[in-house]
Design a protein around this nucleic acid. Sequence first.
DNA 1: AAAGATAACAACCGCGTCGAT
DNA 2: TATCGACGCGGTTGTTATCTT
Length: 324
Amino acid sequence: MVRPPCCEKAGIKKGPWTPEEDIILVSYIQEHGPGNWRAVPTNTGLLRCSKSCRLRWTNYLRPGIKRGNFTPHEEGMIIHLQALLGNKWAAIASYLPQRTDNDIKNYWNTHLKKKLKKFQVGSDHHNSTSSYHHIMPKNDYNNERIFDNSKHQYNSNSSLVTNDPNSSVYASSAENISRLLEGWTRKSPFQANNHERTYHDITTECDATTIAAAVPASINQCYKPEIDNDEGINGMNQSDELHCILSYNHNLNSLACENSVSCDSSQKGSENSGFIDQEKLHFMQEEKPKIETNPPLSFLEKWLLEESCTQVDQEVMDELPSIF
DNA sequence: AAAGATAACAACCGCGTCGAT
DNA sequence: TATCGACGCGGTTGTTATCTT
């Protein structure tokens, strides 16, 4: 039995989203909140299928999304969570709340798989712990992708911006939508209660030390997002690093079985809940920011339209906190 | 400078699961 | 309990940018 495609209806648009479509979608979600995707195309007039709308929101427009520039810390997390969980990208993404499963999956397929392969080959030849360092960037990961093209540059937040009004690089706009919308969650009454803070909140507001305290010790034992030199993670030497990563894997396994809800990662319902104590991870399960208050739409739309053509005006960005 | 190869990533497709009825 | 619709997930494809020859 072959299921008919969800978007077989004539007139359904496919392909890249335009800024205008994004505005419509964001506006609608501002008003109604995410969910009931079936109704979105009907109510917004978007010529997109519900799936496409949901995907666009969850992978691109949703507040709190961090794009590109995976840190060595994140790389390490992904590598070992993948080793532990397999290709359960959603489960892996739950440990990296600012990343989407799609983003992680893409990054794995395009970067990490190759790096690991290379590493394994290297290990075969050298049988050396230091080989691991080949899969970790020597310095800032940003260096791996060089933008010497005059049309592109990284801004102070390491996000890609374009100076070319004709550029098709729309990702920067969408990233900034995400960052813009992030402001909503910060003022959410939900966060007034300290016990109800989300993992996203913690990672956004706090430094690495706080994150390390918040995340179960066995997970963060080795991975603290502080790599800024050639020394490896937190100044560890290379063999320490490898040892640490291997024990990290071991610790995750232990944790999974200790909690013993289920050691079977293939069970979908327990992907996120089965490995770690519910209480400990309450904040992690709350990673999807809740939209509770809405910013002035006209401002958002104005900004969005401008941003689709040009770089964000710093003055506008400076205005954001007072507006939200 | 042009053409082909490769990399990167946004989006689509199809299947599985879950909840409502 | 069975059925159906909605949604989420993972694999895959398509498009664009960048690199290499």
